[in-house]
């Protein structure tokens, strides 16, 4: 299958200007400006295939939004090549954007003063969506996203969650082949998040729309994406299956035990006691070193157990561990 997004050694540098100080400095700034370069995206290559739903994650300032801006044609790369859906995004802007959709969680595509309905109707004309297609799409999205209660409310008076749902609808009315979602769940409550996730899943599964999603909520990724790309300091550090990542780096697991009697030293090989409170003891162990069943077996041979529970390390903690300890750098 042919890749729908091809990024080849993509880089983007920003110039950060430093102003001269003082009143005369303001004059001098006009002619002589000093700057430093920020390598926001640094030599990044990847391919994305039709129908994929990919999570693009990384800490703040990693370069996610910059990548998305290049993919959507808003920014011209400093170097490298990008081809999306057969177009070079920034070159063939008008033709290219007909086939994509984009939602930026921080801002809206809709008209601030217009009711949602009018905004959507305007998009119909802008994208030249055939009437029957428009009606079909609108009806089905209205239902899933539950837009009906605020169809006639001006966008400026919508809550964040309502606005995001309206924006998602707006981004998909013209049946784009692929959509870019930059933090679509930012600031939403649990219920709204769930609704947005279901919608993303629906679009990807039922329509085969390719989706590139950035988020800071690991649960989004865990629920939606098979493949993730992790970027930090402008470099892609990981590109592969999400489960693999968690399996590999989230190796440590937790075993909580309630013993039937008190033991002075309830030790066991290959597991560490991390917490202890009377008969309640918590062990941590590595998947590579020992399996859970073996550990439980060994424990129950030496001690009398009343109750126990095995847990994986929370996904969020795994990701934080990766970011903080830079586990992906070799």
């Amino acid at each position: 299958m042919e890749a729908i997004i091809k990024a080849d050694r993509l880089s983007k540098d920003y110039k950060i200007y430093k102003d001269h100080k003082g009143y005369l400095g303001a004059l001098r700034n006009l002619f002589d400006r000093r700057f430093t370069l920020v390598h926001a995206v640094n030599d990044v290559s990847f391919k994305i295939y039709p129908g994929e739903l990919i999570g693009y994650i990384g800490p703040n300032g990693a370069g996610k939004s910059t990548t998305i801006k290049m993919l959507t044609g808003l920014l011209v790369p400093t170097s490298g090549e990008v081809q999306v859906n057969g177009f070079v995004p920034w070159k063939d802007r008008k033709d290219y954007v007909k086939h994509i959709g984009a939602v930026f969680g921080q801002r809206t595509t809709l008209w601030w003063d217009l009711p949602v309905r009018d905004s959507l109707d305007l998009l119909k004309h802008i994208y030249e969506i055939p009437s029957d297609r428009f009606k079909q799409n609108l009806n089905s999205f209205r239902e899933i996203l539950e837009l009906d209660s605020f169809m006639d409310t001006p966008v400026r008076s919508l809550s964040l969650g309502q606005r995001m749902r309206a924006d998602l609808c707006a981004a998909l009315l013209h049946d784009p082949k692929l959509i870019f979602l930059d933090e679509p769940t930012i600031g939403l409550d649990v219920v709204a998040k769930q609704r947005v996730r279901e919608f993303i899943q629906f679009i990807n599964a039922k329509r085969g729309t390719t989706i590139l999603l950035t988020t800071h909520d690991t649960a989004d990724i865990a629920k939606l994406c098979k493949r993730v790309m992790i970027i930090d300091h402008g470099k892609i550090l990981y590109d592969g299956e999400f489960d693999e990542l968690i399996k590999y780096y989230g190796g440590s697991r937790v075993l909580s035990v309630e013993f039937a009697e008190f033991y002075q030293y309830p030790t066991i090989d290959q597991a560490k006691i991390v917490q202890r409170d009377g008969v309640n003891v918590i062990y941590s162990f590595k998947r590579e070193n020992i399996s859970a069943s073996k550990l439980i077996h060994q424990l129950s041979e030496k001690y009398r157990i009343r109750d126990l529970e095995v847990q994986d390390q929370a996904i969020e903690d795994v990701i934080r561990d990766i970011y903080e300890n830079q586990l992906l750098y070799n």
Partner: peptide, 15 residues
């Protein structure tokens, strides 16, 4: 500054 101009660039109409 508000990014509204970006939104215009994302639409398939003469800017």
């Amino acid at each position: 500054i508000k990014g509204t101009f970006d939104q215009l660039l994302l639409r398939p109409v003469n800017i």
